[in-house]
Amino acid sequence: MPPSTPGAVLRRAVQILAVNGRHVGNWYDIDQHASGIPAERCGLCMLGALNVAVGLRPDTPLADHPVIRARRLVYRAALLLAAALGESPDPRSLLQVLSDWHDGVMAPVPPADESVTALMLQAADADQALADDTH
């Protein structure tokens, strides 16, 4: 059963990263894909893992799609990640903010896998706290 909340998408993406491995620099490891591995089973960045968690290709563009529920869930999960980083980017810069952090663009090295997982779980917990507050 596919995830039905942004927090569930984030938790499923953490599981996918644990199995596939993390890739820095692109949605998925293009070299693995070139060797015949399906893109969904290659090493992934955190945004690629969010897409795979809802059954999309890892390189599906990040957008708040009004009709496609899976894309809307990924977008909302990405907003939670940005908030966990203390950022509130506009929709045009959301992808850039998250990919720059994930790939370590503003740091000497990308964050450790454990830091990525911790951020994703923190964002998932924030989604759960919001859901608890509304009930």
Rank of each mutant, 00 (worst) to 15 (best):
S99F: 11
R11H: 06
L50E: 09
I68N: 13
I68F: 11
A129R: 15
L62P: 05
R76M: 08
S99D: 12
G25T: 00
Q96P: 04
P108A: 11
S35Y: 09
V97G: 07
P91A: 12
N51K: 06
Y28S: 01
N20I: 00
A13E: 08
E87I: 03
G25E: 02
L79G: 11
V116M: 03
L119M: 07
G25P: 00
W101F: 05
D132C: 12
L10V: 02
L94H: 03
R71H: 08
L98C: 03
N20W: 00
S93E: 13
M46F: 12
M1K: 14
G21F: 00
L56H: 07
E87S: 11
A77G: 08
L119K: 02
G36S: 07
G7W: 01
L81V: 01
R12S: 10
A70L: 03
A18G: 10
G21W: 06
H65A: 06
M1P: 14
L119Q: 05
M46V: 02
A126N: 12
G104Q: 01
C42V: 06
R76V: 05
A78T: 03
L44M: 03
D90G: 14
T134W: 13
H65W: 09
A34T: 05
L50F: 09
A107D: 14
A112I: 06
I68M: 13
L17N: 00
D113S: 13
A107W: 04
Q96G: 11
M46N: 11
D133V: 07
D59K: 07
A77I: 08
P3L: 01
C42K: 08
M106G: 12
V105Q: 10
P108S: 11
A34M: 10
A39Q: 14
N51F: 03
A112W: 08
Q128K: 10
L56R: 04
P110T: 00
L121Q: 13
P91N: 05
N51D: 10
V97F: 06
R92P: 02
P3T: 04
A70Q: 15
L130K: 12
A53T: 08
R57L: 13
A18D: 14
R76Q: 15
D113T: 11
L94P: 02
G104I: 05
M120P: 05
G104T: 02
E114A: 12
E87A: 14
C45H: 03
T117V: 15
H65R: 10
C45M: 02
Q15F: 05
N20F: 00
S4W: 05
V116D: 04
R72L: 06
G7S: 03
G48M: 05
M120E: 11
P2A: 10
P108K: 12
S35H: 12
A118Q: 11
L98W: 06
S88L: 10
A126Y: 12
V24S: 07
D132F: 04
R76W: 09
S93G: 04
G86V: 02
P6F: 07
N20P: 01
Y28N: 05
L95F: 15
L94K: 00
N26M: 02
C42F: 04
L85N: 08
T117Q: 11
D125H: 10
D31N: 09
D125F: 04
V19M: 11
L56T: 02
A118G: 03
L44W: 09
A118W: 08
C45G: 06
L81S: 00
V54S: 00
D103P: 02
D125M: 06
P108Q: 13
L95R: 15
N20A: 01
D113H: 12
M1R: 14
A18R: 15
T60L: 01
A8H: 11
